[in-house]
Write a protein that binds this DNA or RNA. Structure first.
Length: 795
DNA sequence: TAACGTACATTTTTT
DNA sequence: ATGTACGTTA
């Protein structure tokens, strides 16, 4: 993150226009960034002044247009790099845009300093004006976990039963209030009564507490800036003059607070260009307001609307299927995507008996596609993705792929910095850089166990509060006063002493921050704690700690590290090996794959029952947009599937195919479902098909001579060729060789996911393993290591 | 304080 | 089915 400097920026803003135009001639002569833009994109790029709404459908080259627009602003001399504000939602998007702008401009420009996420830009601003909302500029940013622990304290203090009124729920409420830019005093009475009539009260207390802790949560970053802009016109005025051009990505995902922040910043010059797609708004549940994009024209009078409708990603059939689905939504701004890529495979639809069969079939299909058995060119695993509605659906795929030895990667999931051990370690780092960080202190006083239970911690708190000092100093006083006895006293003294020494070492600076971090984790006994832990997760946790320390290398010091880790730390651990991606539909937004599988299209699962119950038609429409997003991720091959039976929370349930299946336009779909599935078993797929008779697609499914369909034929061909003992893919051969040679019955082994276990049987590459925690599983040898080699994780 | 048992819920997720 | 969060026992 490049730092910036006021004087520079303000000087720039006041530069006479004649000097700005310097680059203009250059830009006119050669503008390589305009090459290959279609007319609509070009218009979006070249309309620099005034409000512009770029409605960019899926795969229509919106990032290309956005980056070209930045390039255009800079090369024509309309703006200097630091006069452009470009906002994205994710760090990933920001990073990509930086790279692409850099590529367009070459050496000419160092970069656009104010290109970043809403949050990172607001942090930068808030650090400069923190005192206006009662904070110091070195405030800490709390994550969800800290938030909840803090709230819990307040809830307990109010004497509320936190069983019936969980802190998590209130945290969610407060978050939603902040998303709507409601400060405690602006909270509508209807909302303040939420949470057992205490919502408003505890919200106010929470904000007060944050202030005394010199901290804020994610929602505050936006909310505080909006407050500052509203209460201090002079500050707002500065920024309005400063940012002469504003660009916003994924505008359909903005919440009220972000919207207000943008409107305030753009109020004077209205040079704002918002890019978005109302059809891809899938974050309503976390406060995004589709209304923001639908209302753009009213908000910014005379706005120019540019529609990007030419799709460069998917085949005709895939686009057709997606368009057919999304047409079911009302109140769209309305775009019609088209492509020049005619032909291609139809979207394939297949029904399965149950979820396991679905996973099995997809696994086989992936292997076939990988080896090119389908009669098509082979596709690499990296080019394939499975997109599910809910993360629990991933499990059946993981289980299946684990047993057949198909490499996969799960995208999303718990973030690296959210993991217990990483957060613990960071709490130590926080205490080293700021000893007064009470939340960090509370987190690690008794981690590892130091014999400091609730009572001891309470004593420390009392001591700290009555003397008006931090918990660490409170602990010091308590020790001096001999207020603590036994093991706890000795251990606490060791901790206090340790923190002092590590802190001093950090300040003196003759040790690198990496050495200090290692020292702290070592001497505190934290690493030891995990080394002695024999649960299956322990080795992984030690790995994560090592990774955390490695991540420190990229920063100057611990402070710099902590500064950024809260906002920018995704684990995009790019792995060289080819793997199938498994992720949720939400996580897939913005990505694309040649081949996409969309399993679990059953009513109740997708569209999700809960979504429909809670948000009715609005919820259903958001689910439909999710379906649209899913299909449009596919470039060449899209396979939708559903299962008649599925185990949900341990209970077998039968389900009907998703209503979205019926909405797929028939002519873009090929049905692969074998006819044997229909009418056989009572109360299963047969019934569900009967129940839905009349719908075009089901009718077709029932009548179609699927044996003659090209898809079914290929399916057969493949299966017969599979049956003959043709040598399988070389990948599997390697596994065979490895597995057979390296494991014996009775051997102790370790598995990344299941932990430690004992080999019960060996059959070729398949091993029966009895895991200590996870129970008996069939696993491929490739995923196992000998137990002794797993143990020695040096640290 | 640790180990064990019981009750409970369980969409989607960034920053 | 499975994880977790919390209360009870030793």
């Amino acid at each position: 993150m490049s730092s910036f400097n006021d004087e520079d920026a303000f000087e720039a803003a006041s530069l006479p226009l004649s000097q700005r135009a310097m680059g203009a001639a250059m830009g006119a002569r050669a503008a390589p960034y305009l090459d290959g833009l279609n007319p609509a994109q070009r218009e979006a790029v070249e309309t620099l002044d005034g409000p512009v709404l770029m409605l960019a459908g899926a795969g229509t080259g919106k990032t290309k247009a956005l980056t070209a627009r930045i390039a255009h602003l800079l090369t024509t001399g309309s703006a200097r790099p630091n006069e452009v504000l470009a906002v994205t939602f994710t760090n990933k998007a920001a990073r990509e845009m930086k790279i692409r702008v850099g590529a367009l401009l070459g050496e000419a420009v160092e970069g656009v300093p104010w290109l970043g996420t809403f949050h990172s830009i607001c942090v930068k601003q808030l650090r400069r004006h923190a005192e206006l909302v009662g904070l110091k500029s070195n405030f800490t940013i709390l994550d969800t976990d800290d938030q909840i622990r803090l709230l819990k304290q307040l809830i307990v203090a109010e004497g509320v039963d936190d069983k019936r009124w969980p802190a998590r729920m209130l945290a969610g409420l407060i978050d939603s209030w902040k998303n709507r830019a409601w400060t405690p005093d602006a909270l509508p009475a209807s909302e303040a009564g939420a949470y057992n009539n205490l919502g408003g009260k505890i919200y106010a207390q929470y904000q007060e507490r944050l202030r005394t802790l010199n901290a804020c949560d994610f929602g505050d970053l936006l909310l505080h800036m909006v407050t500052i802009f509203q209460k201090h016109p002079d500050v707002l005025d500065q920024y309005q003059r400063w940012f002469r051009y504003i660009l916003v990505d994924e505008y359909q995902d903005t919440n009220v607070a972000q919207y207000m922040w943008l409107r305030l910043l753009a109020a004077s010059h209205k040079n704002i260009c918002c890019v978005g797609d109302d059809d891809q708004s899938i974050y309503g549940w976390r406060g995004a307001e589709v209304g923001n994009i639908l209302r753009f024209e009213k908000d910014f009078e005379g706005a120019k609307i540019v529609k990007l409708e030419q799709n460069y990603r998917s085949t005709e059939h895939i686009l057709g299927a997606a368009s057919g689905i999304i047409a079911g939504n009302k109140g769209r701004l309305g775009k019609t995507l088209f492509t020049e890529a005619k032909g291609g495979e139809k979207v394939r639809l297949i029904g399965h008996w149950d979820g396991e069969e679905e996973a099995r079939w997809i696994g086989d299909e992936i292997e076939a596609m990988q080896s090119g058995t389908r009669g098509m060119k082979p596709i690499g695993l990296n080019q394939m993705a499975i997109l599910v509605r809910a993360s629990h659906q991933m499990r059946s795929f993981e289980d299946r792929f684990l047993t057949i030895g198909l490499p996969y990667r799960v995208i999303g999931g718990p973030r690296f910095y959210e993991r217990l051990e990483v957060r613990d370690a960071m709490a130590y780092f926080r205490l080293i850089t700021s000893p007064a960080d009470d939340l960090a202190f509370e987190r690690i006083v008794n981690t590892p166990k130091r014999g400091l239970g609730d009572k001891a911690v309470q004593k420390i708190q009392v001591m700290a509060r009555s003397n008006g000092v931090s918990l660490l100093d409170g602990a010091r006083l308590l020790l001096e006063a001999k207020g603590l006895g036994g093991k706890g006293a000795v251990e606490l003294a060791k901790l206090v002493d340790g923190l002092d020494r590590w802190g001093a070492a950090a300040r003196i600076g003759d040790m690198s921050h990496i050495e200090i971090a290692e020292m702290a984790l070592e001497e505190s006994g934290y690493t030891e704690m995990w080394q002695n832990d024999k649960t299956p997760e322990a080795p992984g946790r030690l790995d994560n700690l090592k990774e955390l320390v490695k991540a420190l290398e990229q920063f100057e010091n611990l402070q710099g590290f902590l500064e950024h880790i809260a906002l920018v730390m995704d684990n995009d651990s790019e792995d060289a090996t080819e793997k199938v991606s498994i992720m949720t539909l939400h996580a897939a937004k913005g990505l694309e794959f040649p081949a996409v599988f969309l399993p679990g299209w059953e009513d109740g699962l997708f569209p999700s029952q809960r979504s429909m119950d809670e948000s009715g038609l609005k919820g259903l429409e958001e689910e439909r947009r999710l379906a649209y997003v899913g299909i449009t991720r596919a470039e060449e091959l899209c396979t939708i599937s559903f299962a008649g039976n599925r185990r949900v929370y341990g209970q077998w349930q039968s389900a009907l195919p998703s209503r979205f299946v019926d909405e797929l336009p028939e002519r873009h779909v090929e049905i692969l479902t074998p006819p044997g599935l229909y009418g056989h078993q009572a109360s299963t797929v047969g019934d569900m098909m009967d129940a839905l008779g009349g719908s075009d697609l089901h009718e077709a499914a029932a009548k179609a001579n699927v044996y003659n369909s090209p898809g079914w034929r290929r399916l057969q061909e493949r299966q017969s060729s599979r049956g003959m003992s043709q040598p399988r893919e070389s990948k599997n051969m390697v596994i065979d060789a490895q597995a057979v040679s390296s494991f014996i019955v009775g051997e102790r082994v370790f598995h990344q996911k299941f932990g430690y276990g004992e080999i019960m049987a060996v059959e070729g590459d398949k091993l029966d393993v009895s895991f200590d925690k996870a129970g008996d599983k069939k696993v491929v040898g490739k995923f196992l290591v000998s137990a002794d080699s797993a143990g020695d994780v040096p640290f």
